[in-house]
Amino acid sequence: MTGNEKLKALKALLDSLSFRDLTLTLDLLVTGAVVYFYASSLMMAGAQQLASGVWISQLLIKVVGVSIALSIVSQLLLELVSDGDVDKPMDEREKQVSLVGNKYALWTLQAGICFAIGQYALEQNGLGVAERTALPFFTLHIMVGAFLLAELVNYATQLIRNRMVTRYG
């Protein structure tokens, strides 16, 4: 593919993007950044920090803070480029796609919660991962991870479904 063809393909892609696609892409990026912040904080933490309930609580507060700050920035960006589209409600197809995204997000969250319950039960019997690793709050991390993963699945599913339905076959 030549440079000119790539440019044409990019223009066609941007032309086919709806405001909803743009919103979902930004939401996906924000959630990805939050996941990166949470995971990198855990990986860089020492064993003493990981075992501290206070440190974990502070980390969770920071995660919420980062999430709110990034959401505000993304909303401001959308407001700037929207041309009034921000206030428009979703149409019937977008609502259906949103429901599909919510369904897969719920499944992800339920799987994560089941996994956390299993880990908790094992931990209470001295068989859990937390007993053998330096992650005493492993059950909590599973739940936070499931929540974040569910958000990623929700936005990614909606983006994919939107692209599937609007591309010419």
């Binding site: 086919s16 709806s18 405001f19 909803r20 696609d21 149409d91 019937e92 197809r93 977008e94 939107n162 599937m164 339905v165 609007t166 591309r167 010419y168 076959g169």
Partner: peptide
């Protein structure tokens, strides 16, 4: 019609069946 251009695109390409109202 009161929908997005992408929805019209999807209906036109027979990739989405609209509601009776639309």
């Amino acid at each position: 019609v009161g929908v997005t251009r992408q929805t019209i695109m999807a209906i036109e390409a027979a990739k989405y069946s609209p509601s009776l109202e639309v």
